[in-house]
């Protein structure tokens, strides 16, 4: 058991190292560099810098050095707990990400709570009352939820909110609170802005979860042990909740591996459309700008969280599912 965990942890560390190399390599792969991207951005905005100025920028940021030197420089910085400067932002990478981390986690958690709070009971209901009117109803809604891309839903919700309810468009705060220090009013302002992104972000996931929960539970309900439990005279709630639901939860637990990185990055496209000040748009922009330290750090962070998340879900599965636990012994 302990040997297993140690082996997994060691493997995880190796994987993370591989992620640092890969993420840095991938960011460097496209032609050009930050300065090329900067010139293109300036040109698109009706401005320009001269060749000499561009060269000076390259030297300043060390972009004229070969790949391995840049990588080693980054590793050296990481070893000191400093992830370098986000070139475009002119601030340390950690500060830039840190600024957005709290709000990202708040939104993602809200979306996850929304997803689970809806998906679990509906999934269970649909499975138990299969082919009932409500089952069909939720199945119908579920397929629509699955079929509509998040960004599309975001656009529609935003347009309706603006056109019919005069709601402020996008973002997480009203203009007057955007910059204000944290206060009760600001928290309330945030709470009133949360439902739209949470629902938009959660809809596709909810639909998917309902389907998974429903089919898993259906598989379990047919099994003889359920019949045995019923025959023994257990109450219906207890029969369903105590055994089949627990087993059907497995896929939920194994998605925790993906949930962790999701919590910190959110959905990139939806966040972009809704103009949420989260890490997702930051990652996209840093990739477009080829701001390698910022992009590299976010990709690394996501990689590390995926690895940790997978580790956690492996351990959780062992705990939640006696079959895995006992099977190994």
């Amino acid at each position: 058991m302990i040997a297993y965990i140690v082996r997994r942890v060691l493997l995880a560390i190796l994987t993370i190292w591989a992620i640092t190399v890969l993420s840095f390599l991938i960011i460097q792969l496209p032609p050009g560099d930050f300065v090329t991207a900067y010139i293109a951005t300036m040109s698109a905005g009706g401005a320009g810098i001269t060749e000499g100025e561009a060269q000076a920028l390259r030297e300043q940021y060390g972009l004229d050095q070969p790949f391995h030197i840049q990588y080693l420089k980054w590793m050296g910085l990481i070893a000191q707990g400093n992830f370098g400067m986000a070139i475009e932002w002119g601030r340390p990478v950690l500060d830039v990400i840190g600024d957005r981390m709290v709000l990202t986690i708040v939104i993602s958690l809200a979306a996850i709570v929304f997803t689970w709070a809806l998906a679990l009971p509906i999934g269970i209901y649909s499975a138990v009352k299969r082919y009932s009117f409500l089952d069909y109803f939720f199945t119908f809604l579920g397929f629509i939820g699955l079929a509509i891309p998040g960004f599309m839903l975001a656009l529609i919700v935003m347009y309706i909110g603006f056109a019919y309810f005069g709601a402020s468009v996008g973002g997480l705060f009203s203009a007057e609170y955007a910059d204000a220090p944290w206060s009760l009013e600001r928290v309330w302002d945030l709470i009133t802005h949360l439902p739209v992104p949470a629902i938009v972000l959660g809809v596709a996931g909810t639909a998917q979860m309902i389907r998974i929960m429903r089919s898993n539970l259906l598989d379990e309900l047919r099994k003889p042990y359920v019949m045995t439990a019923r025959a023994r005279g257990l109450s219906e709630t207890r029969v369903i909740m105590k055994y089949p639901v627990r087993v059907a939860l497995n896929p939920f637990v194994s998605t925790i591996g993906y949930l962790l990185p999701y919590v910190v990055s959110g959905s990139i496209i939806v966040s972009l459309v809704l103009s949420l000040p989260t890490v997702g748009p930051l990652l996209l922009k840093s990739l477009i700008a080829q701001d390698m330290f910022l992009a590299g750090t976010i990709v690394l962070l996501l990689g590390v969280l995926t690895v940790i998340g997978t580790l956690i879900s492996d351990l959780l599965l062992m705990w939640i599912d006696p079959r895995i636990r006992l099977g190994r012994q």
Binding site: G45, M158, Y159, F162, G166, S168, V169, G170, G171, A175, A178, D179, S271, L272, V273, L274, S275, L276, P277, P281
Partner: peptide, 26 residues
Amino acid sequence: LTMTLAENTEVANLRAIAGEYDCQER
């Protein structure tokens, strides 16, 4: 002068339509 961050230009346009900017050409 207060410039608020729009993560994409579509949002900036929609906010302008909603009358949230005083004078904007960019």
